[in-house]
Design a protein around this nucleic acid. Structure first.
Length: 459
DNA sequence: TGAAATGTTGGGGCG
DNA sequence: ACGCCCCAACATTTC
């Protein structure tokens, strides 16, 4: 622990050994407990380590890497304003941190926790090995209102149903007010580091124009996005959140994923202004629930939580999958969603549900194949949220949709996009001979899905 | 955070 | 005036 405190730091500046802050998906300076802990103890050496092999089989996808590149550039700019650099390295995290610690004679390493199975395994080992080597190693919570082990059912089990989970969270929720960016002190000498561009995160072929037009990664942009969202009347969110043609949602998901803003900051902005936003906070609740589940059920990115679904008669249908991915199913709302995803790295949540339901229930294609496509194309691809969403849709997960719930893409389109502004926006060939006929008869596909689902039902 | 099928009700047309 | 039928509109049930 840092015994000196910020007050004494100035006098001890000459003597204090540097503290390494290992940035991962907490790419912000405010409300960053690891950074605050390091800054309180001495000069700060910020490092980002790129080692996608350590995250397999869920190394960041193409859209995520594009975002990460831009977000690291933003972080580097923000750090420079505090006269700090961002040390960028490649290689196994433990090796890199060991070497860097030796190079700068660091006293400790600080980071904020992740909850993906591969990251948890690696971080446990890193902490153990760094401590064995005589370094401080401290981890913190920057990403969640309630960490996965902080709530459990009366029986001491992890929650599997959202409503009681969130009720329990709300009952004990008292997040500390977020700290502003700490004052930061540079080390006496900087280690060598490679430029961000050397990580090769940017696409070689420039397919990302649509992403760049839509998004600005980084802490400042995240704050502006939240500000813009909260300036809207609360009633507008409730009315517009299910209309994909309207900018009614916060669009904070990629910023939250990369930790450019944290849920505590969102929470306090809302409460500090006295905004009544339960409906939106519930969405943050689903994010918390997803992390709770991923931590407690680490096999769920690959395996259904409800094991009876292992015998579900999925179809192998490469043509169907390709039609879905390209937005050529002949169902306008589904196709518009997948085009929006391809062009902007994002899809409206209502449309995600309809598009996912179509893949899983109309085409009977394994939910994992949809999850993998989203993983590679979403700028907000998040293993916890993606896993929960797909298992929920398929009916094999926690708090899953009842097996009989099948979205009707035409009915959903009529409700969510009554004037067809959304489908027209993303499907220029709609209403021309170039637009494909429906690849399935939904009524028949629905009956087929219900028959298949009835077979896996226990009893 | 569904949709479709089935059941019920009540107003109005009409013999 | 009365009963019958039709069929929205709504409620319930079933998948």
């Amino acid at each position: 622990m840092a015994g000196t405190g910020a007050a004494g730091a100035r006098h001890q500046a000459i003597a204090a050994r540097p503290q390494i802050v290992w940035f991962r998906r907490d790419l912000r300076l405010a409300d960053n407990p690891a950074l605050a802990a390091a800054a309180a103890a001495g000069p700060v050496v910020p490092v980002f380590v790129w080692c996608p092999q350590e995250e397999e089989p869920w190394a960041p996808g193409s859209a995520s890497r594009w975002w990460l590149h831009r977000s690291l550039e933003a972080l580097e700019r923000d750090l420079r304003r505090h006269r700090l650099r961002l040390v960028v390295r490649q290689g196994p995290a433990l090796e890199v941190l060991r070497e860097l610690s030796a190079e700068v004679d660091a006293a400790g390493v600080h980071w904020n926790r992740l909850y993906e199975p591969a990251a948890e395994r690696r971080d446990r080992r890193v902490k153990r090995e760094l401590r064995a080597a005589g370094l401080q190693a401290s981890s913190h919570n920057a990403a969640l209102l309630v960490e996965p082990w902080e709530v459990s059912t009366a029986a001491g089990e992890p929650y599997r149903v959202f409503t009681p989970f969130w009720r329990a969270c709300m009952a004990q929720l008292d997040p500390p007010p977020p700290e502003p960016a700490p004052s930061l002190q540079a080390p006496e000498r900087w280690p060598d580091a490679s430029p961000i561009a050397e990580l090769g995160l940017e696409p070689e072929v420039d397919w990302a124009g649509g992403l760049a037009a839509e998004w600005t990664p980084g802490e400042a942009a995240a704050g502006e996005r939240l500000e813009r969202f909260l300036e809207q009347p609360v009633a507008r969110y409730a009315a517009a959140r299910d209309l994909p043609a309207v900018e009614g949602t916060s669009r904070l998901s990629p910023h939250l994923h990369f930790g450019e803003i944290g849920p505590r900051q969102v929470w306090h902005e809302i409460h500090g202004r006295g905004i009544q936003a339960d409906r939106y906070l519930t969405e943050l609740g689903w994010r918390e629930f997803a992390h709770h589940l991923l931590h407690h059920f680490p096999s769920t990115p690959e395996q259904p939580l409800r094991s009876e679904f292992e015998r579900f008669p999925w179809r192998d249908d490469p043509d169907g999958l390709r039609a879905w991915q390209r937005g050529r199913t002949g169902f306008p709302l589904v196709d518009a969603g997948l085009r929006q995803l391809w062009e902007t790295g994002w899809m409206h949540n209502r449309v995600r549900m309809v598009a996912a339901s179509f893949l899983v229930k109309d085409l009977l294609i394994p939910w994992q194949q949809g999850a993998r496509w989203f993983w590679d194309t979403l700028v907000d691809a998040d293993l916890a949220n993606n896993t929960l969403g797909w298992q929920w849709t398929a009916g094999c997960g926690a708090d899953a949709a009842p097996f009989f719930r099948v979205f009707n893409p035409q009915l959903q389109a009529a409700k969510a996009d009554p004037d067809r502004a959304y489908v027209r926006r993303w499907l220029p060939e709609l209403d021309t001979p170039d637009y494909p006929a429906p690849i399935v008869d939904h009524a028949a596909a629905r009956r087929r899905a219900l028959e298949a689902l009835r077979r896996v039902k226990p009893g």
